[in-house]
Design a protein around this nucleic acid. Structure first.
Lengths: 143, 143
DNA sequence: TCCCGTTGCAATAGGTTCTGTTACAACGGG
DNA sequence: CCCGTTGTAACAGAACCTATTGCAACGGGA
């Protein structure tokens, strides 16, 4: 399972937007967000673009442009964020089609598909139980 | 979450070894396994090497060499297979360290670490409840 | 209407990972 | 000692991810 950081970036961005909102700064530019994540603004815009298409953030263009949360932080779950930024399933199938003349080669794909579906469902269940406000609360807790 | 097929390959290999064993063929060469998975024998040896280091299969060298299951199929869980072949966690952290002067940048990593830990635990729980004999049974079910 | 800061997006580069392939030394049962 | 198989290195090609530059498009405010 090769690990990309899309969910991490998106969660960071949303938590930062939630904190700024709470502090009275409703709108942030991609550059301001990038300063917290410590990456290039274009990376942030790509992530925020995914979140915008999923309806999780609003964008305002022209002068005084920037990004804001489309919903209250407690109403945005990590599952929605996950679906917004992630496309591939966690476990990949064979690259080449298995040998269909072997009984294992014939049935392994649907079998693993079912099993992986159950695993993914357990993962989604857990993601659905965590909101952006949960992420922010745990983030601000002193360690 | 970029998807590799390691778990799929390993599960296929073990299911095939389990079926061969049930049919009375205790030992298979990497070439025989590769014929079912439809890939290069070296790919299979790499996967079987991981499984051997985890104690899930035995290897025999010299003439008449090949691979066999080290335990009964019902005693090998997909969680053990997952741990044997997968090294990276499903969700990656930031590539560059976040800005530690921002309260979100400071606390986001441990916060997400905890959350990802819970998600991974849910996933592992589900993997632990499926054995190679379950995989083989679902594989041989007609669809 | 014009200005100007910001977004949206294409193009590109470098790094990493994965699969696949070839080659060959090492092993060990017969 | 033979010979089939394993173990592993080296390499190639593809795919993907992060990062960066550049620029057209947008639109609020003067």
């Amino acid at each position: 399972m090769a690990a990309n950081s899309r969910l991490t970036i998106a969660a960071h961005v949303l938590a930062w937007l939630a904190l700024a909102q709470r502090r009275g700064q409703e709108i942030l530019t991609s550059e301001q967000v990038a300063a917290s994540v410590n990456t290039n603004p274009v990376i942030i815009r790509r992530s925020l673009g995914d979140l915008r298409r999923a309806g999780l953030v609003h964008v305002r263009r022209g002068a005084g442009a920037g990004w804001s949360l489309a919903r209250a932080p407690e109403d945005i779950t990590l599952l929605e964020v996950y679906d917004a930024v992630e496309q591939d399933p966690p476990f990949g199938m064979h690259h080449a089609q298995p040998n269909l003349e072997c009984p294992v080669g014939l049935g392994i794909r649907p079998a693993l598909g079912d099993i992986y579906g159950r695993v993914e469902q357990a993962m989604r269940q857990e993601l659905a139980e965590t909101s952006i406000s949960d992420v922010l609360r745990e983030t601000l807790r002193v360690r």
